[in-house]
Every structure is written in structure tokens, then in C-alpha cells.
Amino acid sequence: MQNFPLNILSLPVWWYSIGLKIALKNAEQNFSFGVKKSGIILFARHIGEPLYGDYTRTGRIVSFFLRLALTFFKLASISLRGMIILIFLLSYLVILPFSILILVWQFLPAK
């Protein structure tokens, strides 16, 4: 901030280079955290195992279908998170020109 006017002018350059890199990194971290939180990888690793150590035939069948349903829900939640992150990323891309545009727009004569 020591060269405030210069900083203001160089903001767009920073925004689409270093800033974008940071935003992508944040998005990736956020998505990874979501994946970890859902535990889908661990869940997938145990896909063939019955739930709660129930090794009976019925237990195995019930477990398989239940795991399929749970995997579906987990995937859905991850996809939702991914979509939200994507929306944020897209917003990142457009928000700077949008903010400048909206500022300029206010100074245009009203129709």
C-alpha cells in the first residue's frame, strides 16, 4: 500500500496472475477438505466390506446396497461443494471488471 495509486492501477494485473493462482489454490484446498470431510475415499476403500462388522449373507447384501446409496449421497454432496466452489471461482473472474463497470455505470447519465 506504500504506493497507493500505483497499487490501484496494478490491481487488475495482480488479480489475474498471482491473485488467480491464490484463488485456484484456495479452491483446491477447499474442495480437498470437502472430499476429506465426506470420507469418500476411505468409504470407497471399504466398499466390499459389510457395515458394522456384520459378515452374514444378509448383512453383506444390505451393506452393499446401503453403501451404494451412501456413496451416491456423498458424491452428491461433493459435487454440490464443487459447484459452489466453481461459482465462487467464476465470480472471482468477473467480479473485478464487474465492480469497475458498475462504478463507471453510476456516472453515466440516466436514460
Binding site: 490491481l11 467480479i95 465492480s99 462504478l103 455505470w105 453510476q106 456516472f107
Partner: peptide
């Protein structure tokens, strides 16, 4: 979307927060 004086602080605030 209608240019007016009251929108200027809001637009400036948006830009400031990005900065």
C-alpha cells in the same frame, strides 16, 4: 442498474473490499 448517486458508495465498497 439505474445510475444514481446512492449506488456510488456501494460500488466503491465492492472495489475497496477486493483491493
Amino acid at each position: 442498474f439505474v445510475p444514481q448517486l446512492l449506488n456510488i458508495p456501494t460500488a466503491l465498497a465492492l472495489f475497496s473490499s477486493l483491493y
